[in-house]
């Protein structure tokens, strides 16, 4: 479980997050929704210790991210909004292997995991391709493969369908659903698209750096979404 306790984050004298208290339950599909600039990405970056709280705490499986950032990063994978910048190496299979090398896994195992991950995502034919030559949809899948290969317990998807066409959007969303249902991976989806709420078990609504709703999707009302500046 990921838990935040009175999480505050300040950047240049301005609070980006104020007193956030939420829990991400294991195996759940949680959607963080809010208007642009409401603090969604900042909150998610605390889950894998890319940011640490100015005040309060974040716990990943009961371990404080301030005390053990590596624990958070090895458990919480992150697919960034600008996924093109997430790709470190030029060749697809090499990029997917990057995180595995950092986990100090043996070469033979790395090769097996990379092959398996690429096959699962049906991009094994791209293994030797240069990432600069891929389409946006393909790059998104490679970025995702790099995270899935590390077998995280939780994965944060930061607006994963932005800039994608309808076909690629559907493909990515069906993969995310599959990871949650079949792979038992806890999903944290950041979005400002109301339609993406349909996948969620739990919803966190952010407005002006604060959580205005946190709970089961069935309890979320249109009024709250309107209050958050989202057209319900």
């Amino acid at each position: 479980m990921i838990q935040t306790k009175n999480l505050c984050f300040k950047y240049e004298d301005e609070f980006i997050l104020k007193d956030v208290n939420v829990e991400i339950k294991e195996g759940s599909f949680t959607t963080i929704i809010g208007a642009n600039g409401s603090g969604k990405t900042t909150l998610a970056k605390h889950f894998n210790a890319l940011l640490t709280p100015t005040k309060g705490s974040v716990f990943v499986d009961a371990v404080d991210t301030k005390k053990d950032a590596l624990n958070a990063r090895s458990k919480v994978g992150f697919v960034f909004q600008n996924f093109e910048d997430q790709l470190v190496y030029s060749i697809v299979e090499e990029d997917v292997a990057f995180g595995l090398e950092n986990l100090e896994i043996g070469i033979n195992d790395i090769n097996k995991i990379v092959d398996k991950t690429l096959t699962e995502l049906r991009i094994d034919h791209l293994a030797k391709q240069n990432v600069n030559m891929l389409s946006l949809g393909q790059k998104q899948l490679v970025a995702l493969a790099g995270v899935i290969a590390m077998k995280p317990k939780y994965i944060v998807f930061d607006e994963p369908t932005t800039n994608l066409d309808e076909k690629n959007k559907r493909n990515i969303m069906s993969i995310i659903k599959r990871l949650n249902k079949d792979g038992k991976i806890t999903i944290i989806l950041i979005t400002n698209v109301l339609n993406d709420l349909k996948y969620a078990d739990y919803v966190i609504v952010l407005k002006n750096s604060s959580v205005i709703f946190y709970g089961e999707k069935s309890k979320l009302s249109g009024r709250i979404l309107k209050e958050a500046g989202l057209n319900a």
Binding site: L50, R73, G77, F78, V88, G99, N102, G146, M150
Partner: peptide
């Protein structure tokens, strides 16, 4: 961020 996230 990505390097840190992937445990560089």
């Amino acid at each position: 961020d990505a390097l840190q996230s992937r445990l560089y």
